[in-house]
Amino acid sequence: MTTSPAKPVDRQLPTEEARELLNLTRELVQRELKPRASQDEAADRFPRDVFRTLGEAGILSLPYDEKYGGGEQPYEVYLQVLEELSAGWLAVGLGVSVHTLSCHALATFGTEEQRAAWLPGMLSGEQLGAYCLSEPQSGSDAAALRTRAELDGDEYVVNGTKAWITHGGQADFYSSLVRTGVDGPKGISCLLVPGDQPGLSFAAPEHKMGMRSSPTAQVHFDGARVPRERLVGEEGQGFQIALAALDSGRLGIAACAIGVAQAALDLAVEYAGTRKQFGRPIAEFQGLSFMLADMATQIEAGRALYLSAARLRDAGRPFSKQAAMAKLFCTDTVMRVTTDAVQVLGGYGYTQDFPAERFMREAKVLQIVEGTNQIQRLVIGRHLTRG
């Protein structure tokens, strides 16, 4: 089913440039994303051309310095762009979030020479990135990663396997956390690995419940010789780099979640306004209208929470606790809202004729990626009790 365009979210934006950027994003969503999302998802088809289109529009580089080809937009604006993209197609919105995350290490911890050499290409729109932290035996326990990089002259020889890598096998570069020293967080470093690096190979993409057009695959390092100049930050600084990136990445996931939730609500409202039972639209029945009201309220609360955290980040203030709260609340919200949207549509919600079932399948992964919601609760609790 093709639904009519929903009424745009009434957003508070800091500049007229930001408003124009959001309008451009909505136009791209209506023209390039929504018409093909369901078909490409059903066919497990990765929309690499869509990312090139977004790159040409400057949307793959929004939060980074103009000096290197970035859009130099505050996170408050960038996240709302992610929300709009995800409302049209989560695989694209989350893909932009992952690309932004994969650029974070170099942009934040790289030397001036490294940034000048590699960051413009990463932000140009022609390249797409991946972020390699998780492993088959170390997901939430990132400090236990085993992929090892041994220094041999001016090269690191890397061996090991990364798991659950978005864009695995499709990315042009991989920001990779590897072990260069002792066990635990102090022995981890960050390497920027080219996608065509000899010794790099990829497993077949995972067969997933949702987000089927976004490839998720294991990445294998088999004696890959990565030049020492591609070490980002200092040896042993990798865990710090990873945590800094994850705080920002969690905000990206929160925004993606609210985008999917908003799309599900828009669909439910449209359907409830046109579907008639007992001689009147079902939206007029109190039980259903209350359900829609709760969905809308949860979405507004989630949006306010992620924007509050983003504004702390933009102001240079600590935001780790708020990022965990936003990720937790927004992704739990999208699971509730998409489940309720299926219920509003009744039997039609369970069919592929409407996108409600796809929204529900997509929502689940957002409670898992960038740290499960149980990990978010752990992070928040530690902030509250550490004195």
Rank of each mutant, 00 (worst) to 15 (best):
R45K: 09
L145T: 03
E155T: 14
S97A: 15
A163H: 04
F46L: 11
Y131W: 14
G121V: 01
L128R: 00
G129V: 08
L119Y: 11
Y174H: 14
A105Q: 04
R36G: 01
A143F: 10
G58Y: 06
R36W: 00
G125N: 12
E56T: 07
C132H: 03
S175E: 11
G70N: 04
L177E: 01
E126Y: 08
R48G: 06
A57L: 00
S176F: 07
G121A: 13
H104Y: 07
M122F: 13
W164F: 14
L151C: 11
P74L: 01
R45P: 05
G71K: 09
G125Y: 11
E72R: 13
L85R: 00
L145M: 03
Y68V: 06
L79Q: 07
T166N: 06
G160F: 13
H167L: 02
L94S: 10
S102P: 07
S124Q: 13
Y174L: 12
G160A: 11
V96P: 01
F51V: 05
Y156D: 12
L151N: 12
A107V: 01
A117F: 02
S86W: 10
E126Q: 14
S175W: 03
Y156C: 11
L128D: 01
R148T: 15
A143L: 06
E150D: 13
G58W: 05
D154K: 12
S138E: 13
G58R: 08
R146T: 10
I59H: 07
R52F: 10
L128V: 10
T53I: 12
S176G: 11
A42T: 12
L119T: 09
F173N: 06
L133K: 02
D152A: 15
E72W: 09
H99P: 01
E150L: 14
G110K: 10
P136I: 03
A116K: 06
Y64I: 09
L133D: 00
T166H: 03
G95R: 03
T100A: 10
Y156G: 12
A107F: 05
T100F: 07
A143H: 14
A149W: 12
D44K: 11
G153L: 13
I165L: 03
G139E: 03
W89Y: 05
S97Y: 02
V157N: 09
E113Y: 03
G168S: 03
Y64C: 07
M122G: 06
G69T: 06
G70M: 04
E56C: 03
E41D: 15
F173Q: 06
G95C: 02
W118K: 11
L177V: 00
G93W: 04
S38G: 07
D40N: 14
